[in-house]
Amino acid sequence: MQNSHSGVNQLGGVFVNGRPLPDSTRQKIVELAHSGARPCDISRILQVSNGCVSKILGRYYETGSIRPRAIGGSKPRVATPEVVSKIAQYKRECPSIFAWEIRDRLLSEGVCTNDNIPSVSSINRVLRNLASEKQQMGADGMYDKLRMLNGQTGSWGTRPGWYPGTSVPGQPTQDGCQQQEGGGENTNSISSNGEDSDEAQMRLQLKRKLQRNRTSFTQEQIEALEKEFERTHYPDVFARERLAAKIDLPEARIQVWFSNRRAKWRREEKLRNQRRQASNTPSHIPISSSFSTSVYQPIPQPTTPVSSFTSGSMLGRTDTALTNTYSALPPMPSFTMANNLPMQPPVPSQTSSYSCMLPTSPSVNGRSYDTYTPPHMQTHMNSQPMGTSGTTSTGLISPGVSVPVQVPGSEPDMSQYWPRLQ
């Protein structure tokens, strides 16, 4: 039975679970980093996980050691009161100082060594604690504590007292930064006198190289990059290397530039699409467009005044059976039934097929058609009795279509119309 579990990581490298990497692998990681390889490249070359490479390099940059820390136990506290007071002093002298600059000053002034120097995250935590204590304490208590930490007896009751030896409130920041720059020169002199001055200088240079600022491109470089971006948004590694040799930039910087440029292009394309949609959409909808001609068919113009009344309900007709019959029939052209047409008796099958359309009241044959006459024609229609054979009435077949029909004066039988409509 094995005491430890061995495995293979996602890159194909072998590791022992819970145990640190061998010293030979750690040394190779540092050597590759000094030669300029990126952590992701080191991870692929040595088949070590990216997190492990970053952790080893980060500890090497901070402490200069590649040895693993002790497994188990607690780390001794490195942010001692003396170190905290120095950090507060540096922050007062130059409020814009960075944590890694404070760390360098602690090393250069001999406050800490490589073994007990606090990390950048520890210094940031100390600065946050100082800021929170400043908010919790009152103004007087804060000034007393700062005077105690600074070891001075001057008056701290006013704002300019934060910067000793100065009279203009805006000047101390520059003086403090100048003092810090002077301390940086002392850093070089002190570290050069040490035993491991060369190694420390190499480590600091490598650290500065990794902690780079934003790349500033010249106009020629920007023009070359934009020209390549117009050709393709995704250049391959050969195109990037050719462009890197042409404009004297690292291939990694060119790759990052193209990634950022593609993101910018997507944002601009989104804005262009929004403007295009806004320009195509009308600002207001016309009133006429809300009524579609496919839904509402136009009603033909009436030929006679009587045809303006298109349904039985508008003429005072309360018989719903006839109203439904007229509205359900398709529109037909106007025609006239003459008196000489043969009077065919209704076929029983045809009569039964339209039995649902006729009223059940037996008085329908005896009703006159003056009910369908509009009010303004009552006088004219009353002067001509319906009993004469020459009287013409208008029957409504569908809305908007008038059918003048000659009705025999002897017997106005409704059943004569249905064979004609089939």
Rank of each mutant, 00 (worst) to 15 (best):
R92G: 10
S65K: 06
S122M: 02
S122E: 00
W100Y: 09
L32I: 01
V8Q: 04
W100S: 08
P68R: 03
L21P: 01
A139V: 09
V16R: 15
R105D: 06
L46Y: 02
S4T: 13
V84D: 03
R77W: 01
E133L: 09
L127W: 15
V16K: 15
G7Y: 09
A33F: 04
G18W: 02
D140P: 11
E62A: 14
G13K: 04
D144L: 09
A79C: 15
P76E: 01
V78I: 06
Y90M: 09
N150Y: 06
K91I: 03
I123F: 06
A70M: 08
P118D: 00
R44H: 06
R92C: 13
I71K: 15
I117R: 15
A99P: 04
I29F: 02
I71W: 07
S6F: 15
V48E: 04
R26M: 02
S132I: 10
S108N: 13
V120H: 07
P39R: 10
P20G: 02
E101H: 07
V84H: 04
E109N: 13
V14F: 10
S96E: 12
W100K: 12
L130P: 08
I42K: 02
D115N: 11
L32Y: 08
I71F: 07
P95V: 15
G64S: 04
F15T: 00
F98M: 05
C40G: 06
G12C: 00
D23T: 09
E109D: 11
S85P: 03
G51L: 02
V83W: 00
F98K: 12
A79E: 01
I71Q: 15
G51F: 03
Q136V: 10
C52W: 00
R59N: 05
H34L: 14
C52M: 00
D23S: 06
E31G: 08
P20R: 01
P81N: 07
N150V: 06
N114P: 12
L11M: 07
G141Y: 10
L130R: 14
D23Y: 10
T63Q: 05
D23E: 09
G12F: 02
S119I: 03
G51P: 02
S132R: 14
G7R: 15
P81Y: 07
S54Y: 07
I123T: 05
F98N: 04
L21T: 05
Q10L: 07
P118G: 05
E82L: 14
N116D: 06
Q2S: 12
V16G: 03
L130T: 13
L11S: 03
D23F: 06
I45V: 10
Q136G: 11
G64T: 00
A70K: 15
S132E: 08
S24H: 14
E31R: 08
R59I: 05
I29M: 13
K91Q: 05
L21K: 03
G13R: 08
K145C: 11
A79W: 00
A131P: 06
Q135P: 09
N124W: 15
R69K: 14
I71L: 07
R69E: 05
C94M: 12
Y143F: 12
N50Q: 12
I56Y: 05
R59T: 05
K86H: 13
E82R: 12
D23C: 10
I71V: 14
A88T: 08
R103N: 06
S65Y: 05
M137K: 13
I66W: 15
V48S: 01
I102D: 05
L57M: 04
G64R: 04
S4I: 11
V48Q: 00
D104N: 13
A33Q: 07
P76I: 06
G51I: 00
R103L: 05
M137R: 14
